[in-house]
Amino acid sequence: MDDLLVVERIRKAWDVVALEDVSLRLPPGHIMGIAGPNGSGKTTLIRLILGHIRPDGGAIRVFGDDPGLSGRAIRSRIGFVLDRPISYEHLSVTRLGRLVADFYADWDEVEFQRLLDEFELPGRRRASALSRGMRVKLGLALALAHNAELLVLDEPTTGLDPVFRRELLARLSAIIADGRTSVLFSTQILTDLDRVADFAVFLRGGRVVFSGPKDDLLDRWAIVRGGPELAAAAGADAVRGIRRSRMGFDVLFDDMDAAKPYCDGPAVLERPTLDDVFLLLGSKESQ
């Protein structure tokens, strides 16, 4: 079972560079979370996968093919929820279902109805009358009802409250349980990645600042928070980021043992949260 998504040294630029030298792989049955500030290239990457735009450099393969050439075949195996979860909002839920069903050869109406019940989406209600959370769920139901092999979600959790978010992430975890389907979602809320994400990709200014199993970050990496004397650590090779704090410096290490020698005296050794890693990784001082 080779990777569902392969991105190799992708480059995409309009008047400003949107993506530069981005590479990542997504094997079947896994969840990949893409995090990054506004304009860091998250949506550009998703538009490349869906074949909305063509890369200026590098190569992208979805199910082994190029989305620019055989987009139609690829998109028939992709379930998507864009950052605007639902279009044609004047239609009712069931009408939207019928409209989308028409496009997918292996649309499963029974599954769609089951998903509507599970997400408590009333069939006759107009999409425009649904709250944002409900619309994301409707988008998800539409994406899941044609047993897609790759789910692409553009910032599904933005604007949702924690209960909704956790429920949505639990649903993603259930989706990949079959070992066949993979999920790729972008987010600005890093706690989304804490639990169910297998791979994390941090984008900043169109460049990949970190890409790999999220567990490495949570299990192996460490942060030393200490006074001004930590400035000396900047040179060490295990250091992935350093940032000035009120009392002195916060230093990010990609290996717990490499960090230990630096935390004698007042310095504190901690296990990083993804927020800390993200902030320290791209921080200016570390370049």
């Binding site: 538009r47 869906l50 074949g51 909305h52 139609r72 075949a73 690829i74 998109r75 028939s76 992709i78 998507f80 864009l82 605007r84 279009s87 044609y88 909002e89 004047h90 989308v100 496009f103 997918y104």
Partner: peptide
């Protein structure tokens, strides 16, 4: 209906 991206994401 601001749906040009939505349609382009469908298998067409």
């Amino acid at each position: 209906f601001d749906a040009d991206r939505f349609v382009a994401a469908l298998p067409v």
